[in-house]
Design a protein around this nucleic acid. Structure first.
Ligand code: NAD
Ligand code: NAD
Lengths: 214, 214
DNA sequence: TATGTTATGTGAATTTAATAACATGAGATC
DNA sequence: GATCTCATGTTATTAAATTCACATAACATA
């Protein structure tokens, strides 16, 4: 089923989006879907949808389309979401709080197994069914909860040391919300989520493109 | 100064990142920087940095590098950040709250001019110096505060109607945090921020690539 | 004033990704 | 059971983005 080919990261990104779209279709009782409908639903071209899926196998039926439940299962499998992933979130501030309470992660099989902070006034506070832990307990909880992925939600100034802590404790992947480039060893998967870049793309388009057409 | 060329969105994205890196350098008293140092600092190649800047003009001095203050000013100008932008955030939930309190927006010249919700229990609550407004006041405040950009932080189910409301009230750009593709007229600039796609890229890399190398 | 050094700016080459076009095969129809 | 329809899967084409390589110009030095 799985071809061996370098898969563009853009394809993986779209796969994640297709997958959640399929989830919605499935919840709505839709049983079959075409590449055109997926394309329409997520805002890409039908050829793109088929191309993306083709990296991983043949999931459809010619002349018919895709079985929603099956394709959903396949996309989840491809994304590694046929298993549960435990997360550690470091930084129980505003963003950390929002992330902890976000139900969308749970739906996709993510389990927030620990939230950590170094501010004594925050430690011990409850966020939903979670309790904010002191940073000191990080190693122990990573171990006991089998956590492989860390989320950084601390200020820029603390991001690198938190990343170092995560690496030291054997985490394999890091999702970083602090807007800095972090130094980690090559074997660590790291991705940044930047909440303001897209906003500045908007202002660029409003301001610069407007100026250009003067 | 400004060449007329289609600028790749990836270039604008990186420009936003360079710009914030330059801000850090400037705060640290650094006066001159090379494309190599910028590249190092943000995690791209030096050629990429120069190529990106070349879309907009010549900002450096050969043999020397770039003047940090000047280049910062130019990048801000290019991104449209030489002016203040008023934002309306709709959805005063966990994410909306985090966005409202995030100081990083202010630093870059964004001014949150209104936060709106339709939940009576949330309306009137204070978030920092802001007060959550009922959706009914949206048209009036958009007008009086000269708001051109809207931020959607409501659940998926309400996102399209909020987008429609924004379009109807003359907003020109939308930043959408709900993980759905929204339908808006062509003249509206819209970008989605998806907080979980990157997480699923991580699991893909951990799970799929691991499986491939078996 | 000539020379050496250094990092920019840019055109060409390469790589990568997206689009288009079409052959294929599954199912429906007659 | 032959034929027709339709949407997939795939190859070919086009487009886009990135990297490379080097000529260029500013500055420092002698
Ligand atoms: N809030 C937003 O909407 C938003 C938007 C864009 C980017 N970000 C980024 O996300 C990160 C978090 O933002 P926030 O708004 O939640 O900030 P915040 O100040 O509300 O929370 C940061 C938390 O990290 C904790 N912390 C600081 N140093 C620590 C350390 N060494 N170890 C453990 N915990 C530590 C603090 O005690 C605090 O609770 C920042 O890097 C910010 O730039 C946030
Ligand atoms: N919280 C996160 O970390 C996170 C992560 C990823 C994506 N998101 C997305 O961001 C969005 C907001 O998430 P959240 O966690 O803040 O949810 P939330 O439930 O905490 O907040 C949503 C808010 O929107 C308000 N609302 C609902 N319908 C509305 C309407 N028609 N008009 C105005 N307000 C309305 C609700 O009253 C509520 O206050 C969702 O689409 C979610 O999928 C959130």
């Amino acid at each position: 089923m799985l071809k061996t080919l370098r898969v563009p990261e853009a394809t993986v990104t779209r796969l994640s989006i297709y997958s959640r779209f399929l989830e919605r279709l499935d919840r709505n009782g839709v049983t079959t879907v075409s590449s055109g409908e997926i394309a329409e639903g997520v805002g890409v071209s039908p050829a793109q949808v088929r191309k993306d899926l083709a990296y991983f196998g043949e999931f459809g039926t010619r002349g018919v389309g895709y079985n929603v439940k099956d394709l959903l299962k396949y996309t989840l499998k491809i994304l590694g979401l046929d298993q549960e992933w435990s997360l550690a979130i470091v930084g129980a501030g505003n963003l950390g709080f929002a992330l902890c309470t976000y139900r969308g992660f749970n739906v996709r099989g993510f389990h927030i197994a620990g939230v950590f902070d170094n501010d004594p006034t925050r430690i011990g506070k409850r966020i939903g069914h979670l309790e904010v832990q002191p940073l000191e307990r990080f190693p122990e909880i990573v171990q006991s909860e089998n956590i492989r992925i860390g989320v950084i939600a601390v200020p820029i100034s603390a991001a690198q040391e938190v990343a170092d802590l995560m690496v030291k404790n054997g985490l394999e992947a890091i999702l970083n919300f602090a807007p800095v480039a972090l130094n980690v060893p090559d074997h660590i998967e790291i991705r940044n989520v930047d909440l303001s870049v897209k906003l500045e793309i908007l202002t660029f388009n409003l301001a610069f493109r407007a100026a250009q057409s003067l």
